[in-house]
Write a protein that binds this DNA or RNA. Sequence first.
RNA 1: GGAACCGUGGUGUAGUGGCCUAACAUACGUCCCUGUCAAGGACGAGAUCGCGGGUUCGAAUCCCGUCGGUUCCGCCA
Length: 602
Amino acid sequence: MSKEWTCGQLRASDAGRKVTLKGWVNSRRDHGGVIFLDVRDRWGVTQTVFSPDHEDAFRVADTVRDEWVVAVRGTVRRRPAGTENPRMATGEIEVTASGIEVLAPSAVPPFEVSGGPEPEESVRLRYRYLDLRRRRMLHNIELRHRVVKYIRDYLSEREFLEVETPILVNSTPEGARDYLVPSRTSPGEFYALPQSPQQLKQLLMVAGIEKYFQIARCFRDEDLRADRQPEFTQLDLEMSFVSQEDVLELTEDLFTGLTEELTGKRVLAKPFPRITYEDSMNRYGNDKPDLRFGMEIADVSEVAATCGFKVFSDTIANGGTVRGLAAPGAASFTRRQIDELTSTAQEFGAKGLVWIAVESPQDSETGYRSPVARFFEREELDSIAHALGARQGDLMLLVADRKPVVLDVLGRLRNHLGALLELADPGVVAYAFIVQPPLFEWNEEEGRWDATHHPFTAPLPGEEELLRTDPGSVRAEAYDLVANGYELGSGSIRIHRREVQAEVFRLMNYSDEEIEQRFGHLLRAFQYGAPPHGGIAPGIDRLVMLLADEPNIREVIPFPKNQAGEDLMLGAPAPVDERQLRELHIQLLPAAKERTASARPQ
RNA sequence: GGAACCGUGGUGUAGUGGCCUAACAUACGUCCCUGUCAAGGACGAGAUCGCGGGUUCGAAUCCCGUCGGUUCCGCCA
């Protein structure tokens, strides 16, 4: 069986052609003496017409229902004048049917595939194969294909090799929780699914591949979010003999090209802004700023220190900070809206939220409106407004606390307001690189330094000396690619000097045994001539989600898992029978045994 | 691990203490209809309101618990 024609290709110029269309019945309209069947396939929808002239076909068409699979034989003709449908690509023509074959009837679907209300997501997931018939899902699958193909073509042209790395690897205790796979042949031992091909791609650099990429599936056993799935796909890439700038430029060119060529979206700025981690935290309150709008955070501690408002001056006196931002046009917010903002800020961790509406700065009497206005001199308010870049009609919002709390709250508030005030142009992708993050963060519980990125990330050139004196101030030669408030991926230049690597491990408080056990294979490899190398690993799912304007990552994954990590269609995860467990040398704990007893497979 | 919101015919919603013997749209079934494309018209079937307990003369509606779903925090590069 083959398909000569698709349901999206026939045009007026095909009039007179005898064709057979195969596909699903998208909609059936029965007028008694004439029946229309819209036949749908991946490529489109074509209207077919049945009249009693062909009695056999007409009788069959009478029994056919939505979502049945049919083959319709007939002749293409221009639609009668006045009945063309400009909303359909094939709307100029129709196929007058002389025959129809039902290839497969369909049970009544649990929800309407074309048109109808949006079903609840659990229903969509349970019947994902029907959900995927919908145009929105097809569009996302197609876009995803084109994105991946663009990446493959782009990198192949630049002499990158796509190399597959194993899915069954070993567990790396730091970072995310691993998915484990018990070994049958090595009792008591486990494989882990890769959180990313990080170490393997570095080994490929030692192997002399020089330019590697992979569309790699990664696994992390952590709790899910709208933009997180337990298994996800990364563009993993690594290059030898490169500087950070080489990696960033390649990434920039690739992402600009695919955004502009595959979507109608505009890239806000190229080259992508390079913002230091510290800058990003200070100006946007997080390390993945949405740059589609401004509304930057500003420091007003200087004014706050000497003002008459005790909450502010005390905070400064106690080593805290006072910062804020100006919400454009929000001076007109009602009391109720401002109260909501305050409680939102409190949910984010603020003790309170001070608001000052900028009414008319020219008027010295009533320039500002605020419950705390009386505690401030006019010049102080002017100076705050100046620092925040506030203009008439804006609402200034100030938070006083310890610096990390203030920045976190204002960062979240900024995103909240960005959405509330619709500040972001949905037609824009604002890519940026966040660079020079700290190499380490102090682990309070364990009393040691943790690698912020991973232990092979190189310190910023010139800061190696600080490893000995002030590890917390060492910055990494690492970078995050962000877009529209999402972290799309991160990467770094890797350490290739043994003494630097040893110093890093020392700071992380690893014993020689631990180093050998966890990283022995990599360090051994590095003894045999490791080239300087670095790379990046952007997430494909998040990228496609962004480009497709989808609110969550599941919309661009054909068979995603729900928040509990379950596949509602397959029913995974599921209990396995006792024999399988025995082969794997696994025994369930009593609680697990009890839980699965009722759901044992046959 | 925690918080918030949601759960009413197949699907999506309304109803938030008595007017509910549960409404509307769509899907579904039967019939009518020769130009629709969200076809139209008539008729019909379909929900003990996620489940359990409680408050009340009376519960879809209030309370408690539980299950399921989503979002967020913790967690996660």
